[in-house]
Structure formats: structure tokens, C-alpha cells
């Protein structure tokens, strides 16, 4: 589904990702772990197509298509979803209305008819129930004045509604208390299927107790320094990130 080959990318002229290769197949859950500043979030932003990040080398293909030539909105329509580490607040944009616009953008792209507010309401109600989100979130403005936990839940709500093929969740767990983490993880687990894939970017092993990864990659100084199965996360938890020595 996703093939990353020797990816190099940076911000403002400085290289942050220094040659990452990664292969993600449908049905798989990959966890990318690493200390602060290792390039985890940059990888997420490059996958989503953030205009401030510059790709200086390598390739990314998604279902055989060169992703680097496609605008962020096209990537989204092709089924890539990024859960933001810091979801952006947009005062004046109603949450439910925004969710319907995003949902309809995908329908239209697939040649289907848009849903009117009433029909969409049924979908929204069901998804919000799944995430134990109170009704008030539909009336409120997009992330405006939401707490950290509320914002993260709202990201997963968007994921639930958009049903992406590949979801990249950038530190969705940070800032969540244990109850919220459980709700969010349950939600993500329900959305998992043999047809979609998940990349979890996290600093903490705790998330992986709730969402079981198939593969764990350790990122340090812009490179994957170790890949393994689920056990690697436990190893990291026990040893911390200090054992990671610079490889260049």
C-alpha cells in the first residue's frame, strides 16, 4: 500500500529525515517510535504533504502512485488520513458542518451524491457514540476551545467518518489521560480492517498496549535504526531511548 524509499526531507533548508525506507501493507499496523526531534512528526507531515516541508530525495508511492506529485487534498481523497499532533483550531467553522463537508468531498470524488445534513447526522451520531463523544461537539466550532484530549478525540472522529485506507496518527496518545486513551484506542481498533493500514507515531509504549502493532520501528536522528515486532516496544520501554547511539 505504502512504499517509502530512501526518503530525505527537511524544513527551512535543514535535513531532518535522512533516508527512511518503509513498506506498509494493507491490514498492518506499524508503530514508529523515537525520542523528541528524531523526525517522527516530520515524516507524518511529509506523508500528508505539508507545504513547509521539502522532500530532497527518495520516493513515496501509495498504491503504486507517486505521492510526492499530489496535493494534500488529493492525498486525502485517495485515502490518506493524518491525525495531527496539534489539531488546528478554526473558530467560526461548525464542527458538524465541517465533518459533512469533508465527508461529501470524498463522496463527490468517488462520483457519488452528497449527503444532506439529515442523512449525514445519522452517520455522525453513530460515530460519536462509538467514541463516547457528547452531543455538544457537533455544535461547537472546529477544535475551538477544545482541551487537548477533546481535540484528539475529534481527530479520531474525523478518521471514523472519512474511513481512510491509511491513517497516520501523529502522537495521538500524548496529552490523553488513561480513560481517554482507552476510548480513542477502542475507536481506532474498531476501524481497523484487513483493507486498511495504520501508522502510529508515538513517544510512549503505553499506546501499544491498547493498539497492537505488527511492526515497531525506532527512529533516531532521521533514520530507522531498528525494526522489529511488538516486543521491541517493550525493550524500548525498559531501556529508554538512551541506548540509541548516533549512527552517522
Amino acid at each position: 500500500m505504502l512504499e517509502v524509499k530512501d526518503l530525505r526531507a527537511g524544513f527551512d533548508g535543514s535535513e531532518i529525515i535522512k533516508g527512511i525506507s518503509l513498506s506498509v501493507k494493507a491490514g498492518e499496523v506499524h508503530a514508529i517510535m523515537g525520542p523528541n526531534g528524531s523526525g517522527k512528526s516530520t515524516l507524518a507531515k511529509v506523508l500528508a504533504g505539508h507545504p513547509s516541508y521539502e522532500v530532497t530525495g527518495g520516493e513515496i508511492s501509495f498504491n503504486g502512485e507517486n505521492l510526492l506529485e499530489i496535493e494534500p487534498e488529493q492525498r486525502a481523497l485517495k485515502g490518506i488520513f493524518m491525525g495531527f499532533q496539534y489539531p488546528v483550531e478554526i473558530p467560526g467553522v461548525n464542527n458538524a458542518e465541517f465533518l459533512r463537508m469533508a465527508y461529501n468531498a470524498r463522496l463527490v470524488n468517488e462520483g457519488q451524491e452528497e449527503l444532506d445534513p439529515l442523512d449525514f447526522d445519522d452517520i455522525l451520531t453513530e460515530k460519536m457514540k462509538m467514541l463516547s463523544m457528547e452531543k455538544k461537539y457537533r455544535e461547537r466550532n472546529l477544535n475551538d476551545g477544545f482541551s487537548g484530549g477533546e481535540k484528539k478525540k475529534n481527530e479520531i472522529l474525523q478518521m471514523a467518518i472519512l474511513q481512510p485506507k491509511l491513517a497516520v496518527l501523529d502522537e495521538t496518545d500524548s496529552g490523553l489521560d488513561i480513560d481517554a486513551l482507552r476510548v480513542v484506542s477502542d475507536g481506532v481498533n474498531k476501524l481497523k480492517s484487513a483493507d486498511n493500514a495504520l501508522i502510529l507515531i508515538t513517544h510512549y509504549q503505553r499506546l501499544l498496549e491498547y493498539i497492537q502493532p505488527d511492526f515497531v520501528h525506532v527512529l533516531s536522528q532521521g533514520k530507522i535504526v531498528k525494526s522489529g515486532e511488538k516486543g521491541l516496544a517493550l525493550e524500548l520501554e525498559a531501556q529508554g531511548y538512551d541506548w540509541l547511539t548516533p549512527t552517522n
Binding site: A48, G49, H50, P51, E71, P72, E73, R75, A76, L77, F81, M82, F84, P87, V88, I90, F98, M101, A102, A105, R106, N109, Q158, L162
Partner: peptide, 9 residues
């Protein structure tokens, strides 16, 4: 960027 990542043109 946020809105575009949700598929809005």
C-alpha cells in the same frame, strides 16, 4: 493545510 488534509480543495 489542516482543511486540505481532510480533502477540501
Amino acid at each position: 493545510f489542516y482543511l486540505k488534509t481532510r480533502g477540501l480543495s
